[in-house]
């Protein structure tokens, strides 16, 4: 049996004594793509910043993070640097602020190649060209000499992805990689990530609040609320039959592009502040199916028969037809496709 690529066990984070992550368990298999969804402030990004030792010193991180069975949490810098960028690479929402504005793009990519793969000179340049080509930057030879401000937002994100690929990582953590981009460019980047994954066989963590984008890229998804995983399962299972009221709420809140125009369905209230978590289930004050015990007893993340994990005292029903149906015969897109072809 092949072990998992990365395993998080009981990962907890506290800032100045305020607990923000309450024990995250997550296994990532080789080549697997997992979506991490939830509203802002639910701990999606903090999970990975903590796992890779990127949080500031005032954060207290406990638990276990294993890469290929080897513990990396709390390890010295030289061990971490063998993992960061090399085994696990990360890209962020705002590509232009992640790139160094005063260095040519080619230099930034070859720097990563020198650090992670010991490539220098012509070899590094040739590899940088190949990477830029791979992420779909036309005229790569000339573009190596340009500065980040000479690229558009979508192209900066492509450059970031090329840099992330420089270490030939086993896992790419993409933190809201398309949120800041225009709709048509968003679709291009998603398409690129899907293509790269099938080409390189790397695993991917896709952090996003856009469930639509997550379902394009991932097989499994993990729904987080207030620093905990509340539901986890295959994308199909979550879409067809969301059992946690929060998962259901996230789906229902997405405005629809087809069907009759209707009032949007919000989740009332907001994510609680970590220092002011409600008693019992953290979602109970916003939940439409709340019962008395939800306010007193905190639900545990439990494995269900169908392979999903769920943390809810009163999960929603089993019957797919009772839910927001996921209709595979949508009229909009096939028609648009027909007319364009």
């Amino acid at each position: 049996m092949v072990s998992n690529l990365v395993e998080l066990r009981g990962l907890k984070v506290a800032f100045d004594g305020v607990q923000v992550l309450h024990g995250i368990d997550l296994e990532i298999g080789r080549g697997e793509a997992i979506g991490l969804v939830g509203e802002s402030g639910c701990g999606k990004s903090v999970t990975w910043l903590a796992a890779l030792g990127l949080l500031p010193g005032k954060a207290t991180v406990t638990g276990s993070v294993r890469v290929d069975g080897q513990e990396i949490l709390g390890q010295p810098r030289n061990v971490l640097e063998g993992v960061r960028g090399k085994r696990i690479a990360m890209i962020f929402q705002d590509p232009s602020s992640s790139l160094n504005p005063v260095l040519r793009v080619g230099r930034q990519i070859t720097e990563a190649l020198a650090i992670h793969r010991g490539l220098h000179g012509q070899a590094a340049k040739a590899e940088a060209l190949r990477l830029l080509d791979m992420v779909g930057i036309p005229d790569a030879r000339r573009r190596l000499e340009l500065f980040p401000h000479e690229f558009s937002g979508g192209q900066c994100q492509r450059v970031m992805i090329a840099m992330a690929l420089a270490g030939e990582p086993d896992l790419l953590v993409a933190d809201e990689p398309t949120t800041a981009l225009d709709a048509t460019i968003q679709a291009q980047i998603l398409d690129l990530l899907i293509g790269l994954r099938s080409e390189t066989g790397m695993a991917m963590i896709f952090i996003s609040h856009d469930l639509g984008a997550v379902s394009q890229v991932c097989e499994r998804a993990c729904v987080m609320y207030a620093g905990q995983v509340v539901e986890q399962g295959s994308i199909q299972a979550l879409f067809d039959n969301p059992r946690h009221p929060y998962t259901r709420g996230l789906f229902d809140a997405i405005p629809r592009i087809d069907g009759p125009r209707q009032r949007l369905v919000p989740i009332p209230g907001t994510v609680p502040h970590p220092s002011d978590l409600p008693e019992g289930c953290a979602f109970s004050p916003r939940c439409s199916h709340v019962a008395i015990d939800c306010r007193t007893r905190r639900p545990e993340l439990t494995a269900m028969d169908d392979g999903r994990r769920l943390s809810c005292h009163h999960p929603l029903g089993h019957h797919p037809e009772a839910h927001h149906p996921v209709d595979s015969t949508r009229p909009v897109e096939p028609r648009a496709l027909e007319a364009l072809s």
Binding site: A183, T184, A187, D210, G212, F239, I257, V332
Partner: peptide, 14 residues
């Protein structure tokens, strides 16, 4: 048409 088509629809692949 392209704008409409670029909207990710939950549960639908790219």
């Amino acid at each position: 048409k392209a704008l409409v088509s670029s909207v990710p629809v939950p549960g639908k692949l790219l």
